[in-house]
Nucleic acid binder design. Structure first.
Lengths: 221, 221
DNA sequence: GAATCATAAC
DNA sequence: GAATCATAAC
């Protein structure tokens, strides 16, 4: 049961902890220990009670908390971009900014509130099975922007696919749905191996020619 | 479909074929290409029509064919024993003779009539899954002795478990039944890995102390 | 990691 | 060999 609070020690005392990229009184930014994309960081608010809220309700009626958290999300995006620019000298920030996704799991495994900030390549040796993939490539992954509190109660513009209010309802179904390429939408049904091979091609198309050495990035496990 | 007749070329022309241990006009004796025990040979009658008979009916009302085939089965047993004696100098023929099982599959994969002659250790890297094991360790495997034609029509002594007459009926069920050690009967349910580890122990108890080097016998794949 | 399914099956 | 299930899950 204790694995669910794996982030608590980092929240309590981020100093010197492995993977910590940044921290202040409000938040910690860490590298995901099992990154599911080339870059995969986490923003972890340090708020004593919000940390125990479900991500789909933590920002409800709390614009202040959303705005504060967004500041760290933006900082995290900057960290992802600058890290990639060091690896790909011919790229520009615009190469990567539209390619970064920010959001939360509608059923998080770890209970402390955390926001994923990651490139949308899903190219990683830690991406090992369908549930991993679908948790980031379907509406199981809820964009952070959709968590922004609204003044109006009129939700006629809402995209019901994401269904933030009762968003955990269809979560299991999304994890089991057919595998679709997050670049082009090609349907790989249940063929995870087929998807992985295709993602490798898409990755090389996306990241090739940016001055980096893709062979350095080969999976090491 | 052609794999089913894989033995036909050996029947037609055994000369110089790999794995052939003996042949004359009536039969060929070969090493099973995927041995499921330390020793696993096959007796293949060369009779032009009998070779296409199902093993559970090939010997019906044909004592002569049974007697002829038994001669080659006995020869095959001698070959197994002499081969083992070369490997285990401290053993005697009686170490192995009661430990050899002779019989047929009630649903053979290969269509040419063949009789299995094998040690009852099931210790082999080619023994890879439940169906392999149960095909030799349950009544799916029909002892050759039970195929001997009888004068009498009184079958009150028959063991209905083997049910030679309609023997293929429960064949699929036997392949799926729980895994039981062929030495001691211990039930391993569906744990093939558990069974394999136990068989390794039984093997070392049976074959240890016979002057051979068991380390030479370690699986090579 | 291991059992199951599909494939190959000796 | 690969998908599934169970386990672990960052």
């Amino acid at each position: 049961m204790s694995f669910r609070t794996a982030f608590q020690p980092i929240i309590d005392k981020p100093e010197g902890k492995p993977g910590v990229l940044f921290y202040d009184d409000n938040a910690v930014i860490i590298e995901d220990k099992y990154p599911k994309s080339l870059r995969h960081y986490l923003v972890i608010p340090r708020h004593a009670t919000k940390t125990h809220d479900h991500p789909l309700v933590a920002f409800d009626d709390d614009s202040e908390f959303y705005t504060l958290t967004k500041k760290y999300v933006d900082k995290c995006i900057d960290l992802v971009v600058s890290s990639l620019l060091r690896q790909f000298p011919d790229a520009t920030p615009d190469t990567f900014r539209p390619f970064i996704q920010v959001g939360v799991h509608s059923q998080p495994s770890l209970s402390n509130l955390h926001i994923h900030v990651m490139t949308r390549d899903m190219w990683s040796p830690a991406m090992k099975h369908k549930k991993h993939y679908n948790s980031f490539a379907t509406p199981f992954f809820v964009p952070f922007a959709r968590l922004e509190p609204r003044e109006s109660t009129d939700d006629s513009d809402d995209d019901n696919d994401n269904n933030v209010g009762g968003g955990a309802a269809n979560a299991d179904a999304w994890l089991k749905t057919g595998l679709r390429c997050c670049y082009c939408g090609t349907d790989f049904k249940n063929s995870f191996v087929g998807l992985k091979k295709h993602l490798d091609k898409e990755f090389r198309r996306k990241y090739g020619g940016l001055g980096g050495d893709l062979d350095d990035l080969r999976p090491n496990q």
